[in-house]
Design a protein around this nucleic acid. Structure first.
Length: 580
RNA sequence: GCCCCCGUAGCUCAGGUGGAUAGAGCAGCAGUUUCCUAAACUGCGUGCCGGGUGUUCGAGUCACCCCGGGGGCACCA
């Protein structure tokens, strides 16, 4: 039973005994200052209005009638009417025992048991290698998957490959130009093409694998003639290689996706867009119109945004009925479904097919898309809260304090694999997870490399390594640790020791709240705090020492710290080294 | 013009679902090693929490307005 539940029972008992009304939601918080106890509740303040009594009087009544519990040392009334609870040494001992008994399972819970969540992240366009911001999304997404699973959710991670549409075509044309260039043809890159060097390498590889093409002037001519079939095949070949490369880099990063969904193969070829358009039409949520006819408000838009005039009508979705600022096109006048329609189909027919929760990590440049997506899904009967979007903010890469300009269009970017090579997987992940995912991040490569020893990740990992080292040392001294249940934890009386145990005891609640809020960075911060408690303790108090009983008790404490550090780092996808 | 996000110490950032006297790292300065790993430890902080109004017993946190920064606003994806 959680200590807060136990304390809650005590308060309820006290309220009853004092003749005060019962409360439904009882909030316990950990005060910022230790003088304010280990836990505090504001219940007296919330009851003040209803009972027309002074908060402090109510708090005093609660304290007076609070039952004697072995977990509780004493209670105090403080400030405007807080009830502060100070926990006992006995409780600390049992809390540590719980950590040691649970082991790797410590921190797991069932808050999200029974929930089936589909979690999509990274989903970079298959037009080039992964870059830095993809590494950030991968770190956050993977940690979220771990977090939700730790709370009992069934999570399927998904990578969506946009292997269709304009960008795919631009890629295919660029690749064809590179292949032709390799064949000695003077072929320029298309205007909106991808200039990166990786396509040159891929072109070489392609020709090496297809010696016939190199010799066959017909094939060359065919490619030049822009046969759509041949171009599509060529593009497909390039995209497959590029996606393979992305998959490899992610695997090196420790991120493996459960599902790789292809926009072309799984959504378009399956005919899902037409189905979903039909479904919306049946609900009378569509209409045909030329540009502008639909919109009586005619919002003043920047002149350059004028779309080309179409002479055939397009099919529109009444998104404005569901909170979007205007209606949106589902089917272009050309008869092609828009990306929006394809995406609705993807969400409605695939993502929501077997899942009750859909979480998608996107870049800030896509956030304008959220309103229309939410509108469409709501129109199709999905509750709006089931569709969650997390914005992964941009990473500004610095080198010696100077921003590194990145643009896929210009072919200038720092690759994810270069980042991993330079700063390492653990440091990269932890750095990303030390920030809120929705706030922009400055990442100075030079600093991260040069001062790698100052990186918080090493501070945390070192706490684990120290514990492991301690146990190696203990073993050498012939001090085999007995079952922890036999160790006299009551010997842990130092304030530092009590404080560390209390910190450890908060871990399960922390995991639950980080999972609920979808904020893995809370784990990283908490681990950093734990290391900040442990290192000074280790420095100032000898663990392995003549007092055998005390040595064992301290070993048990260190085992608990090491255990929870390992558990927490595992949630973040960061390793817990045996030694450093 | 409309919408979204951000604004906390010199810098980078934390500040559960509103709680008590707002924190950490870095940078800077001064120290610690006969001692389980110095990737460590100890000490040094005068912040109109961008500004204003409001809600509340209580606002860095919630609402509205303003200022400043970023992003978005296609029959592109």
């Amino acid at each position: 039973m959680r200590i807060t539940d136990r304390l809650g029972e005590g308060v309820r008992t006290a309220l009853g005994a004092a003749g005060l009304p019962a409360v439904t939601d009882l909030v316990w918080e950990v005060p910022r200052q230790t003088e304010h106890g280990d836990y505090a509740t504001n219940v007296a303040m919330t009851l003040a209005r209803e009972t027309r009594q002074a908060p402090r009087k109510i708090a005093e009544a609660i304290v007076r009638h609070f039952p004697a519990l072995p977990e509780v040392d004493r209670l105090e009334v403080a400030g405007p009417g807080f009830v502060n609870v100070f926990l006992s040494h006995a409780w600390c001992a049992s809390a540590l025992r719980e950590v040691l008994a649970a082991g790797p399972a410590y921190g797991r819970g069932d808050r999200h048991r029974g929930q089936r969540a589909r979690l999509e992240f990274v989903s970079a366009n298959p037009t080039g290698p992964l870059v830095i911001v993809n590494a950030r999304a991968a770190a956050v997404g993977d940690a979220l998957a771990h977090l939700l699973r730790a709370q009992g959710a069934e999570v399927t991670t998904e990578y969506y490959v946009n292997d269709s549409g304009n960008q795919f075509e631009a890629l295919a044309r660029s690749f064809r130009a590179r292949v032709l260039q390799q064949l000695g043809v003077d072929e320029p890159l298309p205007d909106s093409g991808y200039p990166g060097e990786y396509l040159v390498d891929l072109a070489k590889q392609y020709l090496a694998e297809h010696p016939a093409v190199r010799r066959d002037r017909t094939a060359q001519a065919q490619a030049q003639a822009a046969d759509p079939q041949a171009l599509a095949r060529l593009g497909r070949w390039a995209v497959d290689r590029i996606v393979d490369g992305q998959r490899r880099v992610l695997a090196d990063y420790g991120v493996a996706f459960d599902v790789w969904t292809s926009e072309q193969g799984d959504v378009r070829d399956a005919g899902l867009p037409a189905q979903v358009i039909e479904e919306l039409r049946k609900r009378h949520l569509t209409y045909e119109a030329l540009e502008g006819e639909s919109d009586d408000r005619a919002p003043a838009r920047p002149p350059r945004a004028q779309p080309p005039r179409a002479d055939a009508p397009a099919l529109w979705f009444r998104a404005s009925q569901y909170g979007d600022e205007k209606d949106r096109v589902l089917r272009k006048s050309s008869g092609e479904p828009t990306y929006f329609a394809v995406d609705i189909a993807f969400h409605h027919a695939l993502k929501f097919a077997d899942f009750d929760r859909v979480i998608t990590l996107i870049g800030p440049d896509h956030h304008g898309y959220l309103a229309r997506m939410r509108a469409a899904l709501q129109a199709l009967g999905h509750p709006p809260e089931a569709f969650e979007i997390l914005i992964i903010q941009l990473v500004t890469l610095l080198r010696d304090g100077e921003p590194v300009r990145m643009s896929k269009r210009r072919g200038e970017f720092v690759l994810m694999e270069e980042l991993l090579e330079e700063v390492g997987r653990d440091a990269a992940r932890f750095t990303f997870l030390m920030r809120r995912h929705d706030s922009p991040l400055d990442f100075d490569l030079a600093v991260a490399t040069r001062q790698s020893a100052d990186n918080p990740v090493y501070y945390v990992q070192y706490a684990h390594a120290r514990v492991r080292s301690l146990f190696r040392q203990a073993a050498e001294q012939g001090m085999a640790a007995p079952p922890w249940s036999e160790v006299i934890l009551a010997r842990l009386l130092l304030p530092e020791e009590q404080q560390i145990i209390k910190h450890l005891a908060q871990y399960p609640e922390l995991v639950a709240s980080a999972a609920r809020a979808l904020e893995p960075h809370r784990i990283a911060y908490w681990l950093y705090e734990l290391a900040g408690l442990f290192h000074p303790y280790y420095k100032n108090h000898r663990v392995l020492q003549p007092d055998h009983e005390l040595a064992l008790a301290r070993l048990a404490l260190c085992a608990g710290v090491g255990r929870v550090v390992a558990n927490g780092l595992a949630l973040l996808g960061v390793s817990a080294p045996e030694s450093m």
